[in-house]
Simulated scan of single mutants.
Amino acid sequence: MVWNFLLLRQLEVWLTTRLLRSPIFHQMVGRVHQRVQQVRHGIPPEPSRTRLDSDQGLGLKRFIEYFKEEIKDQLKGKPPNKL
């Protein structure tokens, strides 16, 4: 009887470990958490990634401008952290 309990306990530990290592389980928990936060706080859903694809040209322009500004600041000897 004790051996059956120990075997069941080992099986439970193995199954739990396998479940916690599964990326699909973590994605599911993340989605549930997101929905609960949306319902609790009234936060609108996050935009889908397809809407962000249309802004890539503008984002690239901003990055290039920022990169040029950083290079100029480094050549002048200004500190890199602008926070």
Results as ranks from 00 to 15, higher is better:
Met1Ile: 15
Met1Pro: 02
Val2Pro: 01
Val2Gln: 01
Trp3Arg: 04
Asn4Asp: 09
Phe5Trp: 14
Leu6Asp: 02
Leu7Ser: 05
Leu7Lys: 05
Leu8Asp: 04
Leu8Thr: 10
Gln10Met: 03
Leu11Gly: 06
Trp14His: 06
Leu15Asn: 08
Leu15Ala: 14
Thr16Ile: 03
Thr17Ser: 15
Thr17Arg: 13
Arg18Thr: 09
Arg18Leu: 11
Leu19Cys: 11
Leu20Trp: 12
Arg21Met: 12
Arg21Glu: 15
Arg21Thr: 13
Ser22Asn: 08
Ser22Cys: 13
Ser22His: 06
Pro23Asn: 02
Pro23Trp: 01
Ile24Cys: 03
Ile24Val: 14
His26Phe: 12
His26Asn: 03
His26Tyr: 12
Gln27Thr: 15
Gln27Glu: 12
Gln27Asn: 09
Val29Gln: 01
Val29Asn: 01
Val29Ile: 09
Gly30Pro: 03
Gly30Asn: 08
Arg31Cys: 12
Arg31Pro: 00
Arg31Trp: 07
Gln34Asn: 09
Gln37Pro: 00
Gln37Leu: 15
Gln37Arg: 11
Gln37Ser: 08
Val39Asn: 00
Val39Trp: 01
Arg40His: 09
Gly42Ile: 10
Ile43Phe: 06
Ile43Cys: 02
Ile43Trp: 05
Pro44Glu: 08
Pro44Arg: 10
Pro45Glu: 10
Glu46Ser: 03
Glu46Tyr: 01
Glu46Ala: 10
Glu46Phe: 03
Pro47Gly: 05
Pro47Asp: 05
Arg49Phe: 03
Arg49Pro: 06
Arg49Thr: 07
Thr50Cys: 14
Arg51Pro: 01
Leu52Asp: 11
Asp53Ala: 11
Asp55Ser: 14
Asp55His: 07
Asp55Cys: 14
Asp55Met: 15
Gln56Met: 14
Gly57Trp: 00
Leu58Asp: 07
Leu58Asn: 10
Gly59Cys: 07
Gly59Val: 00
Leu60Asn: 06
Arg62Ile: 05
Arg62Glu: 15
Arg62Val: 11
Ile64Trp: 11
Ile64Gln: 15
Glu65Arg: 06
Tyr66Arg: 12
Tyr66Asn: 15
Phe67Pro: 00
Glu69Phe: 00
Glu70Lys: 12
Ile71Lys: 05
Ile71Asp: 08
Lys72Asp: 15
Lys72Ser: 13
Lys72Gly: 13
Asp73Ser: 13
Gln74His: 06
Leu75Trp: 00
Lys76Asn: 14
Lys76Ser: 01
Lys76Pro: 01
Gly77Cys: 09
Lys78Phe: 08
Pro79Gly: 09
Pro80Thr: 06
Asn81Met: 04
Lys82Tyr: 00
Lys82Phe: 01
Lys82Leu: 14
Leu83Asp: 08
